[in-house]
Design a protein around this nucleic acid. Structure first.
Length: 234
DNA sequence: CCAGACGTTGTT
DNA sequence: GTCTGG
DNA sequence: CCAGACGTTGTT
DNA sequence: GTCTGG
């Protein structure tokens, strides 16, 4: 699955890579947890470019009575997202890309969960497939939330976990944003595991387990007490 | 028809 | 809001 | 996802 | 054990 991400790319890099109409004002984040705001790229209806927006991670369907209640919909299975009532409308009309420099997966071990950072071999920023929703408070205020799509793990993630986030390569971003009914088959075809040779995984400090810990040490490889049982270093 | 759910993950 | 179950 | 709380009353 | 908060 995908329950923790980071985004460290400089604002001007994000603006250039994602064709943003405005250079965002963003601080690097090393440990973004569900319930917090993440940055998401959406088409800008007013131009050919795109916008970066803040969505709370954990989708709240528009018919939910209380956005604080209920399970946290932080992921949506790509295999079924189209047919689920909580996700169908968002998938049909409100897709986004979640820019990340990496995501974390946990391996269950005796004595606790060991976190691993998974990122591109070249450490460049990349994009996860997301959907978002809008929940109207009794007054004027609106809560905007999102969920990250998952698929089966590829060879890099499989030793850690059997699910991973869907990654949309840059050449497919336009297709991902296409809401045209005739394009839906092509959109569904994007929901597959990334090629294993795109990514590398390494263990990181268990301090990452706490969402309160959000600094560059989150990214640093640490010695693995079970190194040799895993072949994650390519 | 109305009532009630609406989700993923991991584990059993 | 929309679908499923009764 | 993991970490941390998990409760009421009355008083300051 | 289960829920909430981050």
């Amino acid at each position: 699955m995908c329950g923790r991400i980071n985004l460290t790319a400089a604002p001007h890099v994000l603006a250039e890579r994602f064709y943003l109409d405005v250079v965002p004002d963003l601080l690097p984040r090393y440990n973004i947890a569900p319930g917090q705001d993440l940055a998401a790229v959406v088409p800008n209806p007013g131009s050919a470019g795109r916008l970066l927006r803040a969505f709370r991670w954990g989708l709240v369907p528009p018919w939910s009575r209380d956005p604080a209640a209920g399970p946290k919909l932080i992921n949506a299975r790509s295999e079924t997202v189209r047919e689920k009532r909580a996700f169908g409308e968002a998938f049909a009309r409100r897709r986004c890309l979640v820019p990340v420099n990496g995501f974390y997966e946990w391996q269950k071990r005796d004595g606790g969960s060991q976190p691993f950072l998974i990122r591109r071999r070249d450490r460049d920023v990349f994009a996860l497939a997301g959907i978002w929703e809008r929940w109207q408070y009794p007054g004027d205020r609106v809560l905007e939330t999102c969920s990250i799509l998952t698929t089966v793990a590829n060879g890099v993630v499989r030793p850690l976990h059997h699910r991973m986030p869907v990654i949309i390569p840059q050449q497919d971003w336009r297709q991902w944003f296409s809401l045209d009914e005739a394009q839906q088959e092509a959109v569904m075809a994007l929901l597959k595991p990334a090629p294993a040779d795109l990514l590398l995984a390494h263990p990181v400090t268990r301090r990452v387990n706490s969402p309160a810990f959000d600094d560059p040490a989150c990214l640093e490889p640490v010695a693995d007490d079970r190194k040799g049982q895993l072949n994650l270093f390519g």
